[in-house]
């Protein structure tokens, strides 16, 4: 076991973990941040997406050792009420399991591109799978949040 220092949602933590434990498990089990979901465990679905030093990553693919010293934002710590409200208003969340990852991916897009086209939104969200919505209302949510 090792002590892994991480800053999550603005709070510093020292987490005891095996070096190859997944960051996803540290967040969910050690810190109780269960808004980050596991859909596939192999980096395909994006349900476990978080902001890792400002970048969108799948937390199921990050070993604990690699997360030492990192700054992490999960859905619980994401301060983007406008985007979250847009998902509520447009119906962009159905079963909700992909929603935290989808909102983080949308947030990262809007941070780098204030006025994305439909194509740019579709490409930016292509790493996050949603089985419920067909994406129409998710794209509406991103458009609504940018205004």
């Amino acid at each position: 076991m090792r002590q892994i220092p991480v800053t999550v949602n603005g709070t510093e933590h020292l987490i005891e973990a095996w070096p190859m434990e997944r960051l996803l498990d540290l967040l969910r089990r050690n810190l109780g941040l269960t808004g980050t979901k596991e859909g596939c465990g192999e980096g395909e679905c994006g349900a476990c997406a978080i902001l890792f030093n400002g970048q969108l990553v799948n937390s199921c693919l990050i070993p604990a050792a690699q997360s030492a010293g990192s700054t992490i934002v999960t859905i619980e710590g994401l301060e983007d009420s406008r985007l979250k409200q847009a998902f509520i208003d447009t119906g962009g969340s159905q079963c909700g399991f992909c929603t935290p990852g989808m909102i983080l991916a949308s947030h990262v897009l809007l941070e780098s591109n204030e006025n994305p086209s439909e194509l740019e939104i579709r490409e930016a969200l292509a790493g996050n799978l949603c089985r419920c919505t067909g994406f129409t209302k998710i794209i509406e949510a991103v458009r609504k949040a940018r205004l």
Binding site: T34, G35, E76, I88, S93, G96
Partner: peptide, 12 residues
């Protein structure tokens, strides 16, 4: 709006 939407979008 979906009744449980607020808790879904906040990860709660």
């Amino acid at each position: 709006p979906r009744r449980e939407a607020a808790s879904k979008v906040s990860g709660r």
